[in-house]
């Protein structure tokens, strides 16, 4: 299918794009917090695939992992020299043992979005791939090019950082 795409077969493009564009877009969106950036990443990834710029090898792994990897590189290129994509919302001082009374689920999600955006990229991508994209540790490890143990430790550390940040903002169990 990829070879047909690279030969200019529009039906092959439609099939591949229809199947792989949504996850690539969502991953880029969740990593960057920007729909415009996510669209640029989709363009970069598929243009590279169309022109076989990085030489996709089916024997090296599934296309899905390859495309996530390409998206990751595209995001990294954009991140270089930039500040974290989203500033942490003004932190609310911890309120002793008293949980933040009446916090709505939506508020919790908003705080989480900010906390996630403030994570270093290598922690954030572990959370996005494992917990939000629901990929296996093995697949995540393949995409990130690290051992599975590293994925586990990054995920664990990322969750620890999220807990810390959310706790500082008054989110309690």
């Amino acid at each position: 299918m990829v070879e047909r795409l690279q030969a200019g077969d529009e039906r092959a493009f439609d099939a591949l794009y229809g199947r792989h564009q949504p996850p690539v877009f969502r991953y880029a969106l969740r990593m960057s917090g920007s729909a415009a950036t996510a669209e640029e990443v989709v363009q970069d990834v598929f243009l590279d695939l169309i022109h076989n710029a990085r030489g996709y090898d089916p024997l090296a792994g599934p296309l899905r992992s390859y495309l996530y990897g390409m998206a990751r590189h595209a995001l990294a290129r954009r991140r270089r020299g930039e500040r974290p994509f989203e500033r942490l919302v003004d932190e609310i001082p911890a309120n002793g043992d008293e949980p933040l009374a009446g916090m709505e689920r939506g508020e919790c999600v908003e705080l989480l979005r900010s906390a996630l955006g403030a994570l270093p990229a290598h922690y954030r991508e572990a959370v996005v791939l494992c917990e939000m994209e629901e990929l296996s540790y093995a697949e995540t490890a393949e995409i990130l090019g690290v051992p599975i143990g590293t994925v586990r430790s990054r995920l664990s550390r990322a969750k620890g950082l999220l807990f810390e940040r959310l706790s500082r903002q008054g989110v309690k169990a």
């Binding site: 969502r26 919790c108 989480l112 996630l116």
Partner: peptide, 17 residues
């Protein structure tokens, strides 16, 4: 935390370019 992440993910579950 995992539930909150799933909630966050569900917001963009149907997002596309």
């Amino acid at each position: 935390l995992r539930q909150a992440l799933r909630d966050l993910a569900s917001e963009s579950a149907n997002a596309e370019a």
